[in-house]
Design a protein around this nucleic acid. Sequence first.
DNA 1: CGATCATATTCCCATATGGGAAAATTAGCA
DNA 2: TGCTAATTTTCCCATATGGGAATATGATCG
Lengths: 118, 118
Amino acid sequence: MIVCMPRAATTSDVFNAIAEPQRREILTLLKASELSVGGVADKLGLRQPATSKHLRVLREVGLVHVHQSGKQRLYGLDARGLRKIHDWTGGFEEFWNQSFDRLNEYVKTLKGGTNVDG
Amino acid sequence: MIVCMPRAATTSDVFNAIAEPQRREILTLLKASELSVGGVADKLGLRQPATSKHLRVLREVGLVHVHQSGKQRLYGLDARGLRKIHDWTGGFEEFWNQSFDRLNEYVKTLKGGTNVDG
DNA sequence: CGATCATATTCCCATATGGGAAAATTAGCA
DNA sequence: TGCTAATTTTCCCATATGGGAATATGATCG
């Protein structure tokens, strides 16, 4: 029985997974090439366990995939999940400039209407 | 003194702010028009306090702006902050299809017919 | 000023971290 | 069969929720 609804799990969806800056850095790193856990850890200055945990989250939401290569596990980028976010934010594209205008207009209303000097 | 680094605050940046589904719904709602807190609460089936808290987060990261209108406070969309996310995910656009190919190839090496959901 | 509607904040709870340290697990090789 | 390297998992901590309930603050009007 659910009593309360705390913050959603990072593994629940891609939005949560990339809310963590280090995980975004990992994804950016993997643009260049596949990397082992140790490789990622080295490049980002993290410990291996911490890196492994981040990679696990990314794996669970499907943003990376793994395969064994010798003694290492190579993590590779699977950016398809980011498309969902790109599309969602893209739905606001028409509002980017409009919001600017609205805000300007709003500010104008304040300044012009009240003539308050700041 | 910082002893550990727990999950980042939702107010730390836009990525964290929109990690919460209800806040994304609020932003989508505000595409249509400005809304009062009660208006948002009604449309999403939330209590007013909860709605107010979500709107506070969105305000602190700059995704919405507020102005008084009679007895109500009208919240309006300021989507400019979403551009950062759109741009960041856009940096992976060239990898969306490529990742698909990589994954297909990878799956092929394993077996041959695996259901890949996209 | 007081009454009232509309929001915001506080207090509380259980949950979900993110990282450090250490132990467990897995993979590849002699 | 062991041994070693690489990675994952477990245990622990302090922090940050998100929502409910109750309270405080704010704004408007008489």
